[in-house]
Amino acid sequence: MTSVQDHWSYDKLIPSDLDIGHAAIEELMNALGSAAWEGSDLFRIHMAIEEAVVNAIEHGNKRDANKSVHIVFHVGTDKVTMSIKDQGAGFDHQNVADPTEDERVDQPRGRGVMLMRELMSEVHYNELGNHVTLVKFKSPPAEPE
């Protein structure tokens, strides 16, 4: 349901298909544009939601056609909330190896969770680790130079 503060909401159960996941992301990005989100905020949200949706489809549901992903977006003027829940076994989100450590920094994987945490205002997982909620508050306007 769309609240007074929301410009746009999205609530769908999608199959474990990256093309359909990307179509949902595109709808979100269009809605953010309509709600006057811009610049680095848009980029950060795009980066984080890309990680969350791809993780849910690839690592959570392992692209199993019999499993779905529940996606909920709420876009407001100053706050966006994105909830992604897969039907996988979850993971230990509190003990993810730090990808910036010397022995891992040149490994081509393992940056998604860290990026979401760095780019979003808030990141919450359920205990199992198969449901992530991302929150981003709009950044204040840049000071004129």
Partner: peptide
């Protein structure tokens, strides 16, 4: 995306 970043690392 970070998937593309991974290709650069490789």
């Amino acid at each position: 995306s970070s998937a593309a970043l991974n290709k650069l690392i490789t």
